[in-house]
């Protein structure tokens, strides 16, 4: 944040690009208003792609880009969208961006794209994207909407990476594909925790994350 605060004076004329309000928009989703653990959005993909760190990272980047740019575009054209069909307009914009991400992944990272399988396409229905469009981008100027998209994408990414690091480290003894647990540990009887690779463990880990977060911050009790 320090690098950003230094740019404030030059642009203090109107509302500066990184004014206090805009910084809040960017920062809140990282913890106090985290899309996954507080707003309960976008849980589907958060759980399914976290067996290893690499797909989780790529998924996080994809979701951040799609959320940010769809917020930007929708906020831009929000005055010309008729209320009744706004859902379809939003979905088409999101689907367009996701198609771009999917084609790029297929072209440059085919193995990861195979591993993520349908979950790239499912970014379209990721509740974070739609939720933020409805709750924020439809009522705000493009720039804050863009920041909000970035913030929520990164907030989502943090949870993904935390869960993925725990699951990969204990489940297969590696991080990003590099072996971390040395061979002698296995020789002495250390065993990878196979449970970590199974779907239920993602749910437990997020449950525990929520528990810790709310224990530290009683404001969040019973928000959902």
């Amino acid at each position: 944040m320090s690098a950003e605060t230094t740019t404030v004076p030059q642009e203090a004329k109107k509302e500066s690009l990184f004014s206090k309000k805009n910084r809040r928009v960017l920062r809140d989703p990282l913890d106090d208003n985290n899309p996954i653990t507080v707003q309960v959005l976008g849980i589907c993909s958060a759980l399914a792609v976290t067996v290893q760190v690499k797909p989780a990272l790529i998924m996080a980047v994809g979701v951040t880009l799609v959320t940010a740019f769809s917020s930007l575009i929708i906020s831009w054209i929000r005055d010309s969208i008729p209320g009744r069909i706004r859902m379809i307009v939003q979905l088409v914009v999101v689907a367009l961006l996701v198609t771009l991400v999917d084609q790029i992944l297929k072209a440059y990272m085919f193995d990861v794209s195979k591993k993520l399988s349908v979950f790239v396409g499912l970014i379209i229905t990721n509740c974070i994207v739609m939720g933020r469009l409805e709750a924020f981008a439809m009522a705000q100027k493009p720039w804050p909407a863009f920041l909000d998209g970035i913030g929520n994408g990164v907030g989502y990414g943090i949870i993904l990476v935390v869960v993925a690091v725990i699951r990969e480290l204990f489940g297969s003894g590696s991080l990003l594909g590099y072996k971390l647990v040395p061979q002698w540990a296995y020789d002495m009887g250390y065993v990878n925790n196979g449970m970590m690779m199974l779907p239920p463990m993602a749910l437990f880990l997020i449950g525990i994350y929520i528990w810790i977060q709310r224990a530290r911050n009683p404001k969040l009790y019973n928000v959902s």
């Binding site: 653990t37 309960v40 199974l198 779907p199 239920p200 463990m201 993602a202 749910l203 437990f204 997020i206 449950g207 525990i208 929520i210 528990w211 810790i212 977060q213 709310r214 224990a215 009683p218 969040l220 009790y221 019973n222 928000v223 959902s224």
Partner: peptide, 23 residues
Amino acid sequence: IPNPLQGLGIAMIITGLMAMAFL
């Protein structure tokens, strides 16, 4: 249920247990 775990937290853990049962 402990306060911080109420709502979403316990729902996650129950879903995890159910997923284990479905395994």
